[in-house]
């Protein structure tokens, strides 16, 4: 007698691993552009993050008596590691990527029950924790590549990571700069106008600005690919970018001298990466269509507020974490209308 198997008997070959691999695939163009403009630091950080992520994942699975297979190969730890690496500045002491990733995997993921049960986006928990604890290192960015090449070469970058030593004659403060978004925020608070800042500071030189724009545009392309592949839906990115765009447009129209234009907001910083790859993390995001619109719009709004009035260079991470907290409530009140039920039908 055959074992009783429940219908349906055939399934479409979808899997968590497939989803995660497609996400990684979609990150590739932006990732390459990033290395092109800011040097090898990202690669070094990625290796550190991935190694830490897999080690922590394996260790936690062991502690929790879970099988390594299929959990270690589901690709989720890999995606978390890559997102942390992309969020971190390129030049860092080695222990920061390790710390951020370990925190993400051990605390934010496994202590909450592992894949599927984490209420907060693990990558953003790890990143935000480091940002709060080590603000100096976490906000020091590199200038983009110029005709002379990268600001720091691979060997020097690697040596700095592990020994903290920079080449003769280069100081850490001289090497690093704030990101354009960060610099703009600081200078605006010092009373300079947008035009003054954009002409007077190195971050807004042709190369730097162009670098960020390209990276963002390629993340946008990767994100559209994910929508096309039905890995993510359009709701969260559209709502998040929409709310950043609308809020910044209103402010800019109201007073262009103290508010940068919406394009700067959308292409600068982590808007695109955040909208398509971070906020769309399915586990911690809202799961209903209307809920996703609210969730995305909320992240966009918080991001804009932190960028404009807050003390941090970017607000995407905090936007995501704050909206993660609202997800259960959002989901409860945004259940779709069930087939055949009246529109007013609430649970």
């Amino acid at each position: 007698m055959k074992q009783l198997i429940s219908s349906p008997h055939t399934v479409f070959g979808n899997s968590v691993t497939r989803v995660m691999l497609l996400v990684i695939f979609a990150l590739v163009p932006g990732y390459i552009a990033y290395i092109w403009f800011f040097g090898w630091g990202l690669l070094i950080n990625s290796v550190l993050c991935i190694a830490t992520a897999l080690a922590c994942e394996a260790w936690m699975l062991h502690l929790r008596n879970k099988p390594l297979q299929p959990f270690l190969t589901d690709g989720t730890a890999l995606v978390t590691a890559l997102l942390i690496a992309l969020a971190l500045p390129p030049v860092l002491p080695w222990w920061l990527p390790v710390l951020a990733t370990a925190f993400a995997i051990i605390i934010a993921k496994h202590l909450y029950g592992g894949i599927g049960y984490n209420p907060f986006n693990p990558a953003m928990v790890g990143y935000a924790m480091c940002l709060i604890a080590f603000p100096k290192q976490m906000t020091a960015w590199l200038p983009a590549m110029t005709e002379q090449g990268h600001a720091i070469n691979f060997a020097d970058n690697l040596r700095f990571n592990f020994t903290g030593k920079l080449p003769e004659g280069t100081g850490y403060d001289a090497l690093t700069q704030a990101t354009p978004l960060d610099a703009l925020g600081i200078q605006l608070q010092l009373g300079n106008s947008v035009t003054e800042i954009q002409t007077g500071f190195a971050q807004f030189s042709q190369y730097f600005g162009v670098g960020w724009d390209w990276i963002s545009i390629l993340f946008l392309a990767g994100g559209l690919f994910l929508i096309y592949k039905r890995i993510i839906t359009w709701h969260i990115p559209v709502a998040m970018l929409g709310s950043i765009g609308i809020l910044s447009a209103i402010a800019w129209l109201y007073d262009p001298s103290s508010n940068p234009d919406p394009i700067f907001h959308l292409l600068g910083g982590a808007s695109m990466l955040g909208a398509f790859f971070i906020a769309t993390d399915p586990v911690s995001a809202s799961t209903t269509p209307r809920g996703r619109l609210i969730y995305g719009a909320g992240i966009g709004a918080i991001t804009y507020v932190i960028r404009t009035w807050g003390g941090y260079p970017d607000g995407v991470a905090f936007g995501v974490l704050l909206m993660n907290m609202a997800v259960p409530t959002i989901d409860y009140y945004t259940q779709p209308r069930v087939f055949g039920h009246d529109k007013a039908d609430k649970p």
Partner: peptide, 18 residues
């Protein structure tokens, strides 16, 4: 695997459930 809340199921549910 555990549910990753991707919502794919809700997207195809003809009864419009979650």
């Amino acid at each position: 695997m555990p549910c990753i809340r991707c919502g794919e199921c809700a997207r195809v549910c003809p009864a419009q459930l979650l």
